[in-house]
Design a protein around this nucleic acid. Structure first.
Lengths: 112, 112
DNA sequence: ATTAATACCTAACAAAATTAGGCATTAAAA
DNA sequence: TTTTAATGCCTAATTTTGTTAGGTATTAAT
């Protein structure tokens, strides 16, 4: 079973959600966390992830600190004050959008 | 309250779902149906809808018949045989993706 | 010595929606 | 009666976002 790709537009919100619950994480760790909670049913690719992280830093929602752990660089990301506000908004917006989508996918639309 | 935009990538599946339950619909009608079931919380724009419909026709998933009703043209779309098969697959794939997303948005990710 | 896992990254491209319109008819409101 | 809202179709340019396809480097296991 190939994992589902990320639903377009949701990656940024996924990142914010992860950081809302963990205070700091590094990129590679995020990819593992998503695989773990979704039991390999969703995969966020690094090629999408890193540019998304950099964009969030540019927008002032994330800040970074780097560390060397076991000879390898880890770049930790965490929410800024602005990022904390925005994450609440975006997580909520996505949840609402998912509820609407579920309504469409699970309702009888017109032929009742 | 501005309606949520369609979650990117889901529009095609929404169309297939609508036609799975209605046998035939025209574009404008689809926009109203989505607004109705989601109580105006989701809006599918015509600028996204019509190109998506044309693409589905090109791919052989939809077929069309046109009618003039009250002086205005209506272009009805319905699922082809191939479209019926594909709609089941795509609707299911989207549902699975939504479940994964819900797992991410509603779980405790690491700080439990 | 090679492979897998960890850990970061970019560039070219494609997919999909948004923004910003256009055109035409009918019904309602000013 | 002229303007606006609703119905109904559509396209073009741009932007957003992810995919494909790599690259680099270290550590641990085979």
């Amino acid at each position: 079973m190939e994992p589902n790709p990320v639903i377009k537009g949701s990656l940024t919100t996924i990142i914010l959600k992860l950081l809302e619950q963990n205070s700091r994480m590094y990129g590679y760790e995020m990819t593992r966390a998503v695989r773990e909670v979704t039991k390999d049913r969703m995969d966020i690719t690094e090629a999408a992830l890193y540019p998304a992280l950099h964009k969030l830093v540019d927008e002032g929602l994330l800040e970074t600190t780097s560390e060397v752990v076991e000879g390898r660089i880890r770049k930790y990301y965490s929410l800024t004050k602005k990022g904390k506000k925005e994450s609440l908004i975006k997580i909520n917006a996505l949840k609402e959008a998912l509820e609407s989508l579920n309504l469409i996918l699970n309702s009888n639309l017109g032929n009742a």
